[in-house]
Design a protein around this nucleic acid. Sequence first.
DNA 1: GCGACAG
DNA 2: ATCTTGTCGC
Length: 235
Amino acid sequence: MATYKPLHDWTNISPTDAVALQQQLRSQIRIEPLTATPQTIAGCDISFNKFEETVYAGIVVLNLETLETIEEVGVISSATFPYVPGLLSFREIPSLLEAWQKLKTEPDVVMFDGQGIAHPRRIGIASHGGLFLNRPTFGCAKSVLVGKYEEPAPERGSWSPMTHYKDVVGAALRTKNKVNPVYVSPGHLIDLETAINLTLRCDGGRRGYGYRIPEPTRRTHNLVNALRRGERKAD
DNA sequence: GCGACAG
DNA sequence: ATCTTGTCGC
């Protein structure tokens, strides 16, 4: 039901072709403030068994105000591209788009489990996905791909900019007191400050009593793992 | 040339 | 990412 813009094919692409595609697409990415107040936010993720090509992809949409789950979809597909640092989108986006099409709700903003412009060519999975979904997207990763930063203060909410070749590409953000930071970077049609604020708003619990991983990603992670273990059915 | 390297 | 028990620290 939810649609997207098929900017290019995902099959028969070699790693070399993928890099060329990223170079071609990067100029279309827009880092700017939101043009409307978002009411809903979606999280997306995939899961799979080691050494197997079957992938379990899912998307969970939540009410940004209450954080209640509005809708969730899960699909079983297969990966055709291997995991290559810097080319994650080519491995995960195809199945995520299959899940996206099952959505009845059109999320106002989408959070990805990976980088946005904090990428060697400034087009990580959140940016690439944003171009296809044609709406605000950002990345919230558990580790760094590129960029350096000063350790942020130990309190939830503190953050420090991540720099890569003189460009501020993201931020190391503390989502919980005294816990390792997450790495936030704008994907498309959003700016860093907004991405940081949205990430902090997605904390499960009051007063930072939630988890390190923001709710959209955390819930989707649980969903796709349950799908993989057969504890839940696909849509 | 030697490491680093989202999920 | 996935495979897994106990263990250190607030």
